[in-house]
Design a protein around this nucleic acid. Sequence first.
DNA 1: TAAATTTGACCAGT
DNA 2: ACTGGTCAAATTTA
Length: 355
Amino acid sequence: MESGWSWDQKSLIGELIQGMELTKQLRTELSSASGEESRGSLVQGILSSYEKALLILKWNGPTNQLQMVEATPGLPGSPISVNGSPSSDDSGRVLKDPQDSRKESKKRKTQPRWTEQVKVNSETGFEGPHEDGYSWRKYGQKDILGATYPRSYYRCTFRNTQNCWAVKQVQRSDEDPSVFEITYRGKHTCSQGNYLAQTCHSPDKQEQKETDRDPHELQPLQENLFGNQTIQNIEKLENKASTFCFGSSSTSVGCKDIVNAGFSNLAIDTHSALGSFTRSFTSPTSPDKNYFTPSPCQRSNVGGTHSVQNLDPDVHEIFSANTSATNSPILDWDFPFDSEQINPNFPFNSQGFFY
DNA sequence: TAAATTTGACCAGT
DNA sequence: ACTGGTCAAATTTA
């Protein structure tokens, strides 16, 4: 199992384990002191978080092709605090005029950034979507010097409504056209990010969250994945697939009919963990001039798989590929905590903890 | 009709 | 001057 782990990953796990052990020691000491239930709960929250982190890492496994391009947890340039609130760069961002907006956009270069290489199925010709569970809106496309394929730029759909400034870039690899390099920048501070962070690796909480969710944001997962609408969409897509190949398009939010509002990977992770499968697809707008944007609804990295090739052939018919879990924020946390972040009242089990 | 995408223009960094 | 990243009006889609 460990053979495929990078040094950074091993190191991270080691640190997490150490932190957990230290916290346990602290808990022991605290328990000997009088009272202080709040401390106890705090420590428990810390432990719980460590355990979740380890679980996430184990689930992502060594075959995840995620690469940390600019892993900056804790660095000055990393603006995301552990409680998930937007950093000073982003918080309260109100774009009063275009100049301010552009200044902010440049500052975003200092945000944590990481790249995933998503391999898609080359057998079907229908290279399908890349869906990482978040809902993205394309805001630009550029031809990149020396690159065969253009780069597409996406921002979180909820930028305006929830002040979420996560963005991603998608570029098809020149070397291996079946590989899409997806660079994420910033973290999701929107509800979908919180939702995914809290639940995607905590199946026991999923049911509860489903009852809490906004019906407009998250439809019942089963309905999304296997409901009538899904089947209809699959049929539509299959009809389009014959004319759909690289160089054609899908949308980055193309999976939303099945996952709606980008919560697919929640279910997918859960299903994958259980050894079941999901189908993913795109709903391309498909003007010819568009370029394909990979959107793997499937994140099959659980158990060490990553690309669609590892799926059951029956699942191949549309496509799927995966990305790392929850937009890979787990490798980008701002550790260690500082004194402010460890607030006795901080809800470690709350939605914001992972972001 | 609202939301999403396209695409030319603008801007900052190099 | 060139390039990458973003904006925003126009267009398309659902």
